[in-house]
């Protein structure tokens, strides 16, 4: 047998970069664009807002003076509207998040298994998510009109005299929460459907064989296994509910009597209606801290539970 030919020796000189350095360079090369985007479009504005929040800057007069933490102290201790706004945001979140998640889960359970027409139902519930906020608001403002509105006419059928939904502060809050839930529930439903479908069917079979009822299977197996998904949904829904702006702007404009004036909308008003850029920036920072705090609490609670 012929001996295998010797492989010609590669250049034995050490390469000008060690393997580790070369890998590091490649890593930075790939990270570069994203990192640049992050710095320019996220970190930059954030730092700028922190800066603005310590100035008194009126967009009209184009004058900017450094005032330290005055904007913050004004919001937290002097301006009574601030606490109203925080309270409204909290009510909005407390109303929206549980309702959205419960409805999303119920729909997901109903629509996670294949049956005839399941795709139609999924589409129906998801469609509002991708519907324009303006169209949604126009339709619902119409439906929620005082006496002639469709909703109140339906209620009248069953003998309930519905309120003038968007003209009374408390009912307006209920109305914006409900219409927002209906609009956005499809997104969480899809996430829950994906999570439910990822649970192996054998768990249910095993549990059923052991005598578990459907409710016991849900509480003992399905719900715990949905934990990570529930956390993600809770965090993004909470953040989304604090950031809600377009919906309020289009449905109520923060009214009536500031009954639906939430944080994000107040920031908009301060910044773009009253041109108090400094104060608006301070509010934005406060909102950032609130949302961040809530997220951390949710993550911590979850970690303790597992």
């Amino acid at each position: 047998m012929p001996r295998p030919a010797t492989v010609p020796m590669a250049n034995d000189d050490p390469p000008w970069l060690s393997l580790k350095m070369r890998e590091a360079m490649e890593a930075w090369l790939f990270l570069g664009p994203t990192l640049a985007g992050f710095l320019i479009f996220f970190a930059g504005p954030l730092v700028a807002v922190v800066g603005y929040s310590m100035t008194e800057w009126n967009l009209l007069s184009q004058q900017s003076t450094f005032v330290g933490l005055k904007n913050y102290s004004h919001a937290l201790t002097e301006n009574p509207d601030f606490w109203l706004v925080v309270r409204n945001s909290a009510i909005f979140a407390l109303g929206l998040v549980p309702a959205n998640m419960a409805l999303a889960l119920a729909l997901a359970i109903a629509l996670s298994r294949p049956f005839r027409g399941v795709v139609v139902f999924r589409t129906v519930f998801f469609a509002p998510v991708v519907t324009s906020a303006a169209a949604w608001a126009i339709v619902w403002k119409f439906l929620l009109q005082g006496e002639a509105g469709f909703v109140n006419q339906m209620l009248a059928y069953v003998g309930i005299a519905g309120p003038n939904w968007l003209r009374e502060p408390n009912w307006a809050m209920v109305a914006v929460i409900a219409t927002r839930v209906i609009k956005m529930v499809g997104l969480n439903m899809i996430l829950y459907i994906a999570a439910l479908q990822a649970i192996p069917r054998d768990y249910e079979a095993a549990a059923r064989l052991e005598g578990a009822s459907s409710w016991q299977i849900f509480t003992g197996i399905t719900w715990p296994l949905l934990g990570p998904t529930t956390l993600v949904i809770m965090v993004i829904t909470t953040i989304g509910s604090f950031k809600v702006f377009d919906h309020i702007y289009l449905m109520t404009g923060g009214g009536p009597e500031n009954g639906t004036l939430v944080l994000a909308f107040a920031i908009y008003e301060q910044g773009f209606k009253f041109f108090n850029v400094g104060y608006a920036s301070a509010l934005a920072m406060i909102m950032f801290v609130i949302v961040m705090g809530l997220t951390l609490v949710q993550l911590a609670v979850r970690r303790r539970d597992t």
Partner: peptide, 22 residues
């Protein structure tokens, strides 16, 4: 089961006790 179908969020003890519990 071929997949064993052990409940991943429960300990061995709780897996074995699940049927008795329900």
């Amino acid at each position: 089961f071929q997949s064993y179908a052990l409940y991943p969020h429960l300990t061995v003890r709780d897996n074995m006790a699940f049927g008795l519990k329900v």
